[in-house]
């Protein structure tokens, strides 16, 4: 046998298996903190505006990605938007089947140049079309924690579907 010995039977390939106990913690940053606190406390959607570039950032940024200017113009925007693109998800991050498929969409908020990736619900996949008007459904105020999941999902604007 040499260093070039090859394993001929799958059972000969032994490995040690284990778990690395790690935990991640994410903070949304200065602008993200303000954005989520506004949703938590008043259900408002805040954006920042670059007046020079005429861009409304959703979610809000602290600086303009076009001209790098500091942004301190905060505005409340209408939470209604439209479906920019969507997909139906059948597996979780570990490729395990979900109890029920979920619809994920990129929702562009109409008064902004950006949007949010979130769930769509109260709609069947075959009834969704690109450009469909949607609105967010928020959790009750006492349940809100300042997280993206304070928005339960987006649903078609009543009467628009």
């Amino acid at each position: 046998m040499s260093l070039l010995h090859r394993i001929e039977h799958a059972g000969d390939a032994l490995s040690w298996r284990g778990d690395m106990p790690t935990q991640g913690r994410y903070t949304a940053g200065v602008a993200g903190e303000r954005f989520f606190r506004a949703i938590k406390e008043s259900g408002q959607f805040l954006a920042t505006i670059c007046l020079d570039c005429d861009i409304t950032y959703m979610p809000p940024r602290l600086y303009c990605e076009q001209c790098f200017a500091h942004l301190d113009e905060w505005v409340e925007v209408d939470p209604e938007g439209h479906v920019h693109t969507f997909t139906v998800v059948h597996q979780d991050l570990d490729e395990e089947p979900l109890p029920e498929p979920r619809i994920l969409a990129f929702v562009v908020l109409d008064e902004t140049d950006g949007g949010l990736v979130h769930y769509l619900d109260e709609v069947e996949p075959e009834d969704i079309y690109l450009g469909m008007p949607v609105e967010p459904v928020l959790k009750e105020k006492e349940e809100r924690q300042g997280s993206i999941t304070d928005i339960k999902y987006f649903r078609p604007v009543t009467g628009a579907a």
């Binding site: 390939a13 298996r17 106990p21 991640g24 994410y26 938590k40 570990d94």
Partner: peptide
């Protein structure tokens, strides 16, 4: 401060190699 936590499912498999494989 607002924050999210998550537990990545961080599994590993360390290949024992030819010599240690036979040893085991």
């Amino acid at each position: 401060v607002l924050f999210e936590t998550w537990d990545p499912n961080a599994q590993y498999a360390w290949d024992a190699g030819v010599a240690i494989g036979r040893y085991l």
